[in-house]
Design a protein around this nucleic acid. Structure first.
Length: 596
RNA sequence: GCGGCUGUAGCUCAGCGGAUCAGAGCAUCGGUCUACGGAACCGAGGGUCGGGGGUUCGAAUCCCUCCAGCCGCACCA
């Protein structure tokens, strides 16, 4: 992930590689602080409402709202703010329109900032100091069940958020809350025994999980004897019977091996070490219930032990329970989730918890969080968020299914994308050998699938369309990869020619160069926005815009044929573009190949 | 019934604390071009922002209401 950051060509020995600088405020942070101070002189506490602008680099709209509060004309207020505003040479300002402050960065500031970015491996993205400990719960497949499109979003979004937080200097702990416990395991273990242990395990190893699970289910539904044995197995499993536990462990291990393979193919950082299945909280469940009881939060309802957090009601308008212990004495998943909260806060010392789980579970998590707060397991100092996401839909706008109506295997989706990418590469007749082409096809396929998933606002459902995702044109992952290779191509040629890529000063003037330059300055702001809202699509939007700004620059500003001074400046802009694209794609979990 | 999410151009989607917000990509049509990688670029047409009401000088954005779709609502996770 990080290798591409350091591959910028350096034509002279005196040029140092970029190093990690300390704190660097983003451009909008710098401007906002100055504007806030000026607004405060008119009315303390006023939000400058700083936004990107099409008429300038930024605009501050704060005077409009303030004018109404003061009963004065917006232009007058804006003028007053402008009069006391000290931008310290960062930018110039002018009052425009109804009372907007149009902010234009000065050439001197652009020059200084671009030089700073060139020398900063982090491209201006600041590092949290001291770091927070962020626990991100994502992926969460089920043992002995296929990973399907439903797991795609959690896995891809979670992995991107993990990378994003790490980029921001946070200490990230990934937690894969695998479904490895519960009543279905009686049935699954019995089926494993019936199939013959080795044969059954082999079936799981090759990834035919659906067949295994469905066969177990069929036997359970059809055979009373099997049902009885399955129930007995559940009891034996929970009681810790060694042979039953051994069989269970075998199921789990086979599945984990399979998940690991899927993650590898997807190019996801999650590993077996991140797995904390539901079973890993078994020993804490009784304590969760006992503590809730001790605090007087527990109520008995139809034999189940529940907490009724305030503000939740069922369809009859009655208080809605969070069931922590079932009537039969078994623990519900709420108990597991509560135990996990305690583990993450008390043992791991988390400052922030993220749950990347589908939006249907919104109420469940709202209740779990509420109860955890009530019980004191989730102090106010710990942020806790359900990072919800919508469904993956088929072309018919219904939940994505295969033609036969079954769920779509994640691995089949990936295979299909790889095949399409390979065909596309063959059609282009790219001058690469078969092995390179296969590797590229995998990289392009990952880019296509991940970018399509990450580039829409995550709460929405999105329509899965491989043709559009794998396309090289438009707002797609492969397009961004392509844009990156074009920049890299220029940089390679420049390096071969020994061209200087360090301008004395940037004099970007107006037009495509300046647009690209200001776009490059905006990367840290894009990162900050994505982090604040846990919305990777903001990164996608930024990167696509940057790629477009680069192609406009590419058309308008010849690089290699420019006179040396100008060429150095343009090469530097190319270098920053390449590094920003590579860093951005890396956060999204997308590789940025050198050629394609 | 209660709650949540969603509704923006033919299609897929952005639009972040109200103005300088009617946008992008694809598709369609029309251009550019002996090319630092054409897998490109430029331009055009195309939308009463689901309907209605309210607040405001001003609403895709805030409030109310209605409609449509999806989802959740007691021992599966």
């Amino acid at each position: 992930m990080r290798s591409c950051l350091h591959s910028a060509p350096r034509s002279r020995a005196r040029q140092r590689p970029p190093c990690e600088t300390g704190r660097m405020d983003t451009v909008s942070e710098l401007l906002e602080a100055r504007l806030r101070a000026a607004f405060a002189q008119v009315a303390p506490g006023t939000d400058p409402v700083l936004r990107p602008s099409e008429r300038a680099d930024f605009q501050a709209n704060g005077a409009l709202a303030l004018a109404r509060a003061l009963g004065r004309s917006p232009r007058e207020v804006a003028a007053q703010v402008a009069a006391v505003l000290d931008l310290g040479g960062l930018a110039t300002v002018e009052v425009a329109g109804a009372g907007f402050l149009n902010v234009t960065l000065t050439p001197e500031f652009l020059d200084a900032r671009l030089h700073a970015l060139l020398g900063d491996a982090r491209l201006g993205v600041s590092r949290s100091d001291p770091p927070h400990r962020v626990v991100i719960d994502y992926s969460a497949p089920n043992v002995a069940k296929e990973m399907h499109v439903g797991h795609l979003r959690s896995t891809v979004i979670g992995d991107a958020l993990a990378a994003l937080e790490r980029l921001g200097g946070e200490e990230v702990i990934a937690r894969n809350h695998v479904g490895d416990w519960g009543t279905p395991f009686g049935m699954l273990i019995e089926h494993l025994v019936e199939r013959g242990e080795d044969a059954g395990a082999a079936e799981l190893a090759i990834g035919d999980l659906t067949a295994f699970y469905q066969a177990a289910r069929a036997a359970f539904d059809a055979d009373e004897g099997f049902r009885e044995r399955s129930r007995a197995r559940v009891v034996a499993l929970q009681a810790g019977d060694p042979e039953t536990r051994r069989l269970w462990r075998r199921l789990v291990d086979q599945s984990v091996a399979y998940f690991t393979e899927v993650y590898r193919r997807l190019g996801v950082t999650l590993s077996a070490a991140d797995i904390r299945g539901e079973s890993s909280y078994n020993d804490d469940l009784a304590g969760v219930v006992a503590e809730l009881d001790r605090q007087g939060l527990l109520a008995d309802s139809d034999g189940a032990r529940c907490v009724f957090p305030p503000g939740f009601t069922n369809r009859e308008g009655e208080p809605l329970p969070l069931i922590v212990q079932k009537r039969d004495g078994g623990f519900g998943y709420a108990a597991t989730d509560l135990a996990a909260v305690r583990d993450r806060v008390e043992r791991l010392g988390a400052d922030r918890l993220l749950y990347v789980v589908g939006t249907p579970q919104a109420q469940h998590f709202a209740m779990v969080f509420a109860v955890a707060r009530q019980a004191g397991w989730l102090p106010d100092t710990v942020r806790c968020e359900h990072v919800a996401f919508g469904n993956v839909l088929g072309a018919d706008h219904k939940m994505l299914k295969t033609r036969s109506g079954s769920t779509v295997k994640l691995i089949d989706l990936l295979d299909e994308a790889v095949e399409r990418a390979r065909r596309a590469l063959e059609e282009r007749g790219a001058a690469i050998d078969a092995a390179q082409r296969d590797q590229l096809a995998v990289q392009i396929a990952r880019a296509a699938i991940k970018y399509a998933d990450l580039s829409t606002e995550r709460q929405r459902d999105y329509v899965f369309d491989l043709d559009r995702m794998v396309a090289f044109e438009g707002d797609t992952g492969p397009y961004l990869q392509y844009a990156h290779t074009r920049v890299r191509s220029i940089l390679r040629r420049a390096a071969d020619a020994g061209a200087d890529a360090r301008p004395e000063a940037f004099v970007v003037g107006e037009g495509a160069s300046r647009t690209l330059a200001t776009s490059l300055l905006g990367w840290p702001d894009a990162v900050a926005a994505a982090r604040a809202t846990a919305q990777p699509h903001r990164l996608c939007g930024y990167l696509f815009g940057l790629a477009q700004d680069f192609t406009a620059f590419y058309e308008a500003c010849p690089v290699l044929s420019a006179p040396p001074a100008l060429r150095a400046e343009r090469l530097a802009l190319c270098e920053l573009t390449a590094r920003t694209l590579a860093q951005g794609l890396a956060v999204l979990g997308i590789e940025a190949p050198e050629r394609m």
